[in-house]
Computed example of a mutant assay.
Amino acid sequence: MYRALTRDIEVTVEPYYLEEQSDPDDSRYVWGYRIVIANHSDVTVTLIARYWHITDQNGLVDEVTGPGVVGEQPTLEPGDTYEYSSGCPLDTPSGMMFGYYQMQTPAGEAFDVAIPAFSLDTPGQSRTLN
């Protein structure tokens, strides 16, 4: 489990290897990840955009940006949580991801909330420092 806290918005990530979607003989490795965003602040926020920095075992970087997450732009009142799952394919048996969500308050203030760096490791493989 990986955690980051920005302005009392907590992001928790739990990655897991998807063996049934992976094919190591074809250099295809797939991970899922579950994210929980918890608003511990006293301000309502809306997740308006995301940014991901994905690095594979060879150092190849892929950057992903876009509106919301999984087709949604959730609004979190104080005390609310929002949970979703997504996935990431790589051509190598390990890698890492990190990024941020752009949040906006009802007053129009936008700020970034950190997504903690997390490791993508194939079970049974020696851990690689990515």
Results as ranks from 00 to 15, higher is better:
119 S>K: 11
56 D>I: 05
118 F>L: 08
38 A>S: 05
21 Q>D: 13
22 S>K: 03
29 Y>P: 03
20 E>V: 07
102 Q>C: 04
114 A>F: 09
53 H>E: 10
94 S>R: 04
91 D>H: 05
88 C>N: 06
78 P>W: 08
33 Y>S: 15
81 T>H: 09
56 D>G: 06
121 D>I: 02
127 R>G: 13
51 Y>A: 12
17 Y>R: 02
63 E>L: 08
27 S>L: 03
82 Y>W: 06
104 Q>C: 07
36 V>N: 05
48 I>P: 05
101 Y>W: 08
114 A>E: 12
40 H>S: 08
71 G>Q: 11
53 H>L: 01
9 I>E: 02
36 V>G: 08
92 T>H: 06
70 V>D: 10
73 Q>P: 06
109 E>D: 13
16 Y>G: 03
16 Y>N: 10
26 D>S: 02
25 D>H: 04
110 A>Q: 08
44 T>D: 11
112 D>F: 12
35 I>T: 07
17 Y>W: 03
94 S>H: 11
6 T>N: 02
15 P>S: 11
23 D>S: 15
39 N>P: 00
23 D>I: 11
72 E>H: 07
64 V>Y: 12
78 P>C: 05
110 A>E: 13
63 E>H: 02
92 T>R: 01
104 Q>A: 13
93 P>Q: 04
95 G>K: 00
108 G>A: 01
8 D>G: 01
5 L>R: 11
47 L>I: 07
49 A>T: 08
106 P>S: 08
91 D>M: 01
75 T>Q: 14
122 T>K: 01
3 R>S: 13
33 Y>K: 05
118 F>C: 03
17 Y>A: 00
13 V>K: 10
94 S>M: 06
59 G>R: 02
58 N>L: 12
119 S>P: 15
23 D>G: 12
40 H>F: 13
15 P>F: 03
105 T>R: 03
90 L>M: 15
9 I>W: 07
126 S>T: 03
40 H>G: 09
24 P>S: 09
106 P>G: 03
52 W>I: 08
95 G>Y: 01
70 V>P: 02
78 P>F: 07
25 D>K: 02
60 L>M: 05
121 D>A: 00
87 G>R: 06
130 N>V: 14
65 T>A: 13
46 T>S: 12
102 Q>K: 15
59 G>C: 04
69 V>L: 13
109 E>T: 03
27 S>D: 05
69 V>Q: 13
92 T>A: 04
67 P>Q: 10
79 G>K: 14
15 P>Q: 10
23 D>P: 11
119 S>D: 15
128 T>A: 09
29 Y>E: 04
76 L>P: 11
73 Q>I: 10
11 V>G: 03
53 H>T: 13
46 T>A: 15
97 M>A: 07
89 P>T: 01
7 R>I: 12
85 S>V: 09
111 F>C: 08
35 I>A: 14
99 G>L: 08
40 H>E: 13
126 S>D: 02
94 S>V: 09
8 D>K: 11
130 N>D: 13
79 G>F: 15
33 Y>G: 14
9 I>K: 07
102 Q>W: 06
54 I>V: 03
54 I>P: 00
12 T>P: 01
57 Q>W: 04
99 G>K: 00
114 A>Y: 09
98 F>Q: 05
109 E>R: 14
72 E>M: 03
98 F>D: 12
60 L>C: 11
98 F>G: 09
122 T>Q: 00
82 Y>R: 05
47 L>N: 12
128 T>Q: 01
